[in-house]
Design a protein around this nucleic acid. Sequence first.
DNA 1: TATACCATGTAATAAGTTACATGATTTG
DNA 2: CAAATCATGTAACTTATTACATGGTATA
Lengths: 199, 199
Amino acid sequence: MSLRYALLALLTAQPMTGYDLAKAFHVSVGHVWHAPDSQIYPELKRMVRDGLLVDESVPWGEKSTKTRYSVTDEGVAAFRAWMREAIDYPNERDPAHLRAAYFEWTEPEVARRHLQEHIAQYELRRTQWQAQLDAIHRRTHPIVERRLASDTEHDHDAIVAFKVFTYEGFLDRAEGEIAWARHGLELLERLNPGREAGA
Amino acid sequence: MSLRYALLALLTAQPMTGYDLAKAFHVSVGHVWHAPDSQIYPELKRMVRDGLLVDESVPWGEKSTKTRYSVTDEGVAAFRAWMREAIDYPNERDPAHLRAAYFEWTEPEVARRHLQEHIAQYELRRTQWQAQLDAIHRRTHPIVERRLASDTEHDHDAIVAFKVFTYEGFLDRAEGEIAWARHGLELLERLNPGREAGA
DNA sequence: TATACCATGTAATAAGTTACATGATTTG
DNA sequence: CAAATCATGTAACTTATTACATGGTATA
């Protein structure tokens, strides 16, 4: 159920069409809570049904229209209520660590490949999160800037600080995962001395 | 689809009944890949259907029976094949960080409560993972010991080392999450100086 | 006028969650 | 003989994934 609140968070800054919202989503809160377009569009409809949003038809070109969504008072209240709810922590389910626990069942090269892929994964994510963080700091992050421009209710330093805090957490996590995988590579080397790693 | 391989991993050590397997699961690989009993039993049946396991009826008491599952050659092959497959990384979906990104929308006390809960969550997990690690090191971990007793194929040091590696990764992660939440508490204090944290 | 991109989905499937259900057996 | 625990699920629901589908609009 978090998806709807992630969408609500964006729409509190300004009304948007489904398409614009989806785009904005992918370059901002989508880094924290992933969702594909095919999940976003139906969820918007459900949110209208549940009274959190209203939709209006706006013309697009000569004969076409698109749907713009705006948050209702009820939507804002729902968002605030959600902020107060206890977080429910998902159960641990980690495919990379699961593999690692049984590396004895495969060749060292395969294990090495998995760990290298783990490093690549988190280097990629680190790059993306770092880019978010830089843009926030440099005040060029489009979504955060739009938020700051439209928000008169909250302290702007706090708005920025919480986003920075969030992404710094992800960055640390990425570093941790990379360090873990490097330890794994060292372990493989200790268990299989002399074997050269492939290029 | 990882659940079946987590189950397979346990059953390669020895045949077990569904009940025994579920118990063993919860005190070992279940820490890495959670699953409730209601998911385990049906999955075992599907694995029999797919030829990875065979089931046999063993007497239980006077008039009852229970089902014991054993891994087939095909099951072992499937497990090895899975070990070689690329890991598919789940999309980022983090309820705690999602909340944190929008802390400006709630009272500092609520944000503080979330962060304290985050710390409590990861302190709990840390305790559990640390206990696993200690038991592995002290050679009292029932599942790992059973594995070592029955496994003549793999290097025992490697078996232990990979499990240690796995849990050490989790421990580091827990430390990271706790550190992150503590930074968040400091941030809240900076943004709201003078307000005393509730007991 | 072709191509990129705007716009909005549906359908089928898979996976996981929650709650409930039932009876047998062993043990104190 | 009561309580714990052994044993095995089913049903309903929610969430997420994957793949596909369709047509309009703006622009080079």
